[in-house]
C-alpha cells in the first residue's frame, strides 16, 4: 500500500485539473471493473456489477493549489488559491504546475508576515520577460506547493497530497477486493472536492447507489495543544459520525461500527463539526442517498505536509470490504 500511496502522491492534481491523476487511478482498477470513464466535472468513475446492494466508494483525487491569473511584463506570475491554501504558507516554497513548469514563490518586500495575501505573492519561473513566461504558462494553469513525501518511521509517512491519495489507495484496494468477491460496487475518484465537493454531487447523480462510503482524511488531535479532536494517529480508522456537511444516518453508522466489532478492527469516531467532505454533496444528491464515511486520521490536515499512519489505512480497507460484504 505504501508504494501505491507514494506513486499517487507524485501526481500534481489541483482541483479542476485532475485529468492526469484520474488516468493513473482508473488504470489501477480497470482490470477488475466493467467500465471506467471520466465525466463532465472530471470525476474518475469505475463500475463493477455484482450481487447485493450497490455500494459506491468515494475518495477525492484533487488537492488544494494555486492558479495563474496574471502574467507580468517582467515575467513573474500572479496566482490565486484553488481551495483552501494560506498565502503565508507558500512563501519561499517551490510550486509545480500541471504542465511540469516549476517556480519559487516570492513575496513583495515591505509586507509584514501577518499581512501577506495572494495580492503580494508572485511565482518566479525564471522567465526574463512576459513573452518568455507566456510561452511556458498560461492564465488558468494550476499548480501545487511541492513537499516531498518522506518516511517518518516504519508506519508513518509525511508529505504533500497524502490527503487524499491515501484515501484513493484505500478505495482502490477495497474496490478491487469487493469486485473480486462479486459484489455490486462502484468507485468514484471525485474531482473539485477542495473547492466545495462539486464533483461528488454529479457523480452521485450518475451512480445513485444504495450506500455511499466516503474515504478521506480527518484531522488528528494528538499533538501539543492541538485543536481539540479526539483522534489519534495509529489508533485505527475513524467511522464518520458527522462532519460539517452531513450527519451519517443511524443505520449506516451502526453498520460500520458493528462490522468493526465483529472483525475485531479498532476504530475511532469522527465528530468534526467544521469538516468539509464529499459526504454532504452525496447525501443530498437525487432524492437523498444513504452516506457513511471511513476516514484515516492525519496530522496537519490543510497544510502542505500531512502525516499519516499506514496501519490506519490498511485497517480501513478491511473495514470497508467487510462492510460492503455484509450490507
Amino acid at each position: 500500500m505504501k508504494d501505491l500511496i507514494l506513486k499517487l502522491a507524485g501526481y500534481v492534481a489541483p482541483s479542476g485539473s485532475e485529468s492526469a491523476v484520474q488516468e493513473a487511478l482508473l488504470e489501477l482498477v480497470k482490470d477488475v471493473a466493467d467500465e471506467v470513464y471520466t465525466d463532465a466535472l472530471g470525476n474518475g468513475i469505475a463500475k463493477k456489477s455484482g450481487n447485493g446492494p450497490h455500494v459506491a466508494l468515494a475518495a477525492h483525487a484533487d488537492e488544494a493549489g494555486v492558479m495563474v491569473i496574471h502574467i507580468e511584463d517582467e515575467g513573474f506570475l500572479r496566482v490565486i488559491s484553488v481551495g483552501d491554501v494560506k498565502a503565508q504558507a507558500l512563501v519561499g516554497r517551490h510550486v509545480k504546475f500541471t504542465n511540469g513548469v516549476t517556480g519559487v514563490v516570492g513575496v513583495e518586500s515591505k509586507v509584514k508576515l501577518e499581512d501577506i495575501s495572494f495580492d503580494n505573492l508572485y511565482v518566479d519561473i525564471g522567465a526574463e520577460n512576459g513573452d518568455v513566461a507566456k510561452s511556458k504558462v498560461y492564465i488558468g494553469l494550476s499548480g501545487v506547493a511541492l513537499e516531498p513525501v518522506v518516511d517518518i518511521d516504519e508506519h508513518k509517512l509525511a508529505g504533500r497530497a497524502l490527503d487524499n491519495r491515501v484515501g484513493c489507495a484505500i478505495a482502490i484496494e477495497a474496490f478491487r477486493q469487493a469486485a473480486a468477491a462479486g459484489h455490486n460496487v462502484s468507485l468514484v475518484f471525485t474531482s473539485q472536492q477542495t473547492v466545495g465537493a462539486r464533483g461528488a454531487k454529479t457523480a452521485a447523480f450518475q451512480l445513485q447507489p444504495d450506500l455511499a462510503i466516503v474515504v478521506d482524511a480527518v484531522p488528528a488531535g494528538d499533538m501539543p495543544q492541538a485543536t481539540r479532536m479526539d483522534l489519534k494517529l495509529g489508533a485505527g480508522p475513524a467511522v464518520k459520525i458527522m462532519d460539517g456537511t452531513a450527519i451519517v444516518p443511524l443505520k449506516v453508522k451502526d453498520h460500520l461500527i458493528e462490522t468493526a466489532k465483529k472483525e475485531g478492527i479498532d476504530i475511532q469516531y469522527e465528530v468534526w463539526p467544521r469538516g468539509l467532505s464529499d459526504a454532504g454533496s452525496i447525501q443530498l444528491s437525487v432524492d437523498g442517498i444513504p452516506v457513511g464515511g471511513v476516514s484515516y486520521p492525519a496530522r496537519y490536515v490543510g497544510n502542505t505536509s500531512t502525516m499519516v499512519d499506514l496501519r490506519d489505512a490498511e485497517a480501513a480497507v478491511r473495514l470497508i470490504v467487510e462492510a460492503i460484504r455484509s450490507y
Binding site: M67, I80, G140
Partner: peptide, 14 residues
Amino acid sequence: TVHDGQTIANRRFL
C-alpha cells in the same frame, strides 16, 4: 471565466 467563487472553468470548453 477561468476561475470564480463557484466554478473552475472546463479547460477544453474555455
